[in-house]
Design a protein around this nucleic acid. Structure first.
Lengths: 122, 122
DNA sequence: TCCATTCGATTACGGTTGTAAACATAGACT
DNA sequence: AGTCTATGTTTACAACCGTAATCGAATGGA
């Protein structure tokens, strides 16, 4: 049972999912484009992620190189399922219906989803 | 900008979305079917939800009756969008594709979604 | 009238999160 | 050799969360 990744930690994960391994300084550099965090903050988040076993670190000279342990795919799947379970009784249909009603779907989106579904069915 | 509702608070919201207004004791009674919470705990959660303006309470004699202020529809939409923004670049298609690939869909589900989409499109 | 029950409000307390400063240590530079 | 710098570790601290116990006021019953 993997531990949950917090909002702030997720920003760090995104950086590492995008490129790894990286040093703490590198991570701080890339994450800085999104959030205004000090290097110290990023280092705290990295430590916590290591403690949660969401990332690994191995020594490179005198510094650490960090890499994801949990894959983005895996995490996204888990979180998506969580949402679908919590709000839509675990069924995808109501989610799609819901978002469709909210006009989150353009006609193009709908067409695309239909195509995808057709492919899956055959 | 509405405040976020925590996991535990959500269980209380679900009860009130299902039936309202209710007293604290009633809420505790219904929520007890899911979680093992003392009445005190439920009362704390109700207070916090009132503070967050997610629910309202009005005096009925000497006790409060609680009702949702935030609609389930609204909240679910917000959370869905949050997930889609965080993980799928704001696009719904990839979420559906993702869940579909994860075999969350039976053939019947697919057929049902297709029907829904066809109706929407016309 | 006095007590037990019922309620909401206040307080509690350990854990997580966001955000960081301070500290220790190992190289790097002078 | 002594100092600046980079880097990981420890500590900090307020807000939020899960989970309650306790307090104080009001009510209902004996």
């Amino acid at each position: 049972m993997p531990e949950r990744i917090s909002e702030a930690e997720l920003a760090v994960m995104e950086v590492l999912w995008n490129e790894a391994p990286l040093t703490a300084t590198d991570v701080a550099g890339r994450v800085a484009r999104q959030r205004e965090w000090s290097l110290a903050t990023v280092k705290t988040l990295l430590s916590r992620l290591v403690a949660k076993e969401a990332i690994s670190h191995h020594l490179d000279g005198r510094r650490f190189l960090y890499s994801p342990l949990v894959e983005r795919e895996t995490y996204v799947t888990r979180e998506s399922r969580r949402l679908v379970d919590r709000f839509f009784g675990g069924k995808l249909m109501p989610l799609v219906a819901h978002l469709a009603e909210q006009k989150s779907l353009s006609d193009d989106d709908i067409a695309e989803i239909e195509k995808l579904l057709r492919e899956m069915q055959s």
